[in-house]
Design a protein around this nucleic acid. Structure first.
Lengths: 261, 261
DNA sequence: TCATGTGAATTGGTTCACAGCA
DNA sequence: TGCTGTGAACCAATTCACATGA
């Protein structure tokens, strides 16, 4: 049933074989295939990639860990550690070549492949998603749309006609969809999910506020507005409590902002 | 500059006076602000809350950690640990009373307060958000909408007229907005963010693919479609690699699916 | 007897601090 | 001289396993 990977750093960690760590030879066997990049680092790599792309557009050819990390909102040690999972592509005393990093991150994230996307549920959100048109920075073309509403079937949205949810398995298989996006009401989500899985979809991005049950080989990520808002609510409440309790020291020495430390 | 709290278990930890573990003995009105619930647990509490609400609607009055955890897609040990941060509200040998749990989680997440929301950027996504109408399960009423487009100003969306982004500080202050939702194109996001902060907003939910810079007292959470898709892409690629490498042992003993372990 | 609640062990992730190299 | 790359130390989160109490 594969637990959701949602929000906060899903654990999961399939016994991923660890690094071919250059040094390793020591003992004996060990080693396996590729390197186990921590889940948390993967998420950040995607952010670095975006920042780097922006920098490249501005004509930058080189960046230091300091520059890149501050643009990405992390500290430089973490950035360097994250990049080290890719291998050693920096130049000591200098920094990283932007184009090299972009290439390596893309390769690592599997962005050299195409990942065909289907969107299910063409309501407000589904519309928004369908109109993203080719999704973020290409590589994720939307190739199928589905809904239940007879009035929508056949209507083109973002240039693509809507199909009926009953056809999900067939259409997904035909069009080799690898990522299914669920933007339906919660009640429909599980059955849609089952059909996507039947259609051979490997990953699901779920916007519906339900915990999906999927077979172990399917990867699920959840985007949950209510959860996000409630987490923010928690922080507001906590802050308010602190103030009430008079323990508003909070930023003790030097009154720096926060985070920093 | 407060790092983003985004995706995978934002660390960050504003120097939150962690574990001020109630040295406060058995004494009196324990409860109080209760210290340091791990960020990761907070996100899950929101999920438990939803599951519990659904159960309550179905008439359930009691639930065991086993039932609740499987419905929420986590293991029961984690669930019990999470609930223990709230205090001891279960009955050994029996389980938890649904209504008590709902109440405690709501209290902990600060859902007894109202959190007025503003949505900035009334495009496809902004429309979708505005029409959520009162956001997830009330408690998060949308009280202001903003856009740049003159054709939109004054037009009601989801029953609320759109104001101009220049008025963000004034309107947010007037209407006591505590949560700002940014659904603008990336280029506009930082300036919108600055205005929200000027308007006294305490939390920001950012859908724009940029890393926002905010003062330390403002909490930011990011929902980033591109990042989500790229993480999924990574997993697809990794899986493909494993197969190619013939190291598809992966599930050594017993050939269970994956994830599980 | 059974399921909660929780210390202790473990695992995963972050940060430090410095060796190594252009 | 810098800045990368990385062991080691540290801290957070998860899981284990069992004492506890209805």
């Amino acid at each position: 049933m594969a637990a959701q990977r949602g929000r906060a750093g899903g654990p999961d960690a399939d016994n991923a074989p660890t690094a071919e760590m250059p040094a390793v030879p020591a003992g004996a066997e060990v080693v396996r295939s590729r390197a186990a990049i921590p889940e948390a680092a993967v998420a950040r790599l995607a952010v670095y990639l975006r920042v780097l792309s922006a920098m490249a557009e501005q004509g930058a050819t080189t960046v230091s860990s300091e520059e890149l990390s501050s643009a990405a909102g992390v500290n430089s040690a973490k950035l360097r550690k994250d990049l080290s999972y890719l291998g050693s592509y920096g130049t000591r005393g200098v920094g990283y070549e932007v184009s090299v990093l972009v290439g390596q991150i893309e390769r690592t994230l599997g962005l050299t492949r195409q990942h065909r996307v289907a969107v299910v549920g063409i309501g407000n959100l589904g519309h928004a998603l369908a109109n993203y048109g080719g999704f973020p920075g290409r590589g994720f073309p939307v190739e199928a749309l589905f809904d239940l509403d007879p009035d929508l079937i056949g209507v083109p949205v973002g240039g693509l006609p809507v199909s009926h949810v009953d056809d999900i398995p067939k259409v997904c298989a035909e069009r080799q969809i690898s990522i299914g996006v669920i933007a339906t009401p919660p009640t429909a989500a599980q059955s849609v999910c089952d059909r996507l899985v039947a259609g051979g979809v490997q990953c699901i991005l779920n916007f519906a506020p339900v915990v999906l049950q999927v077979p172990g080989h399917v990867e699920v990520r959840k985007v949950d507005l209510a959860v996000e808002l409630q987490i923010l609510s928690f922080h507001v409440a906590r802050r308010a409590d602190h103030v009430n309790n008079g323990s508003l020291e909070l930023d003790g020495a030097g009154g720096n902002g926060v985070v920093v430390r």
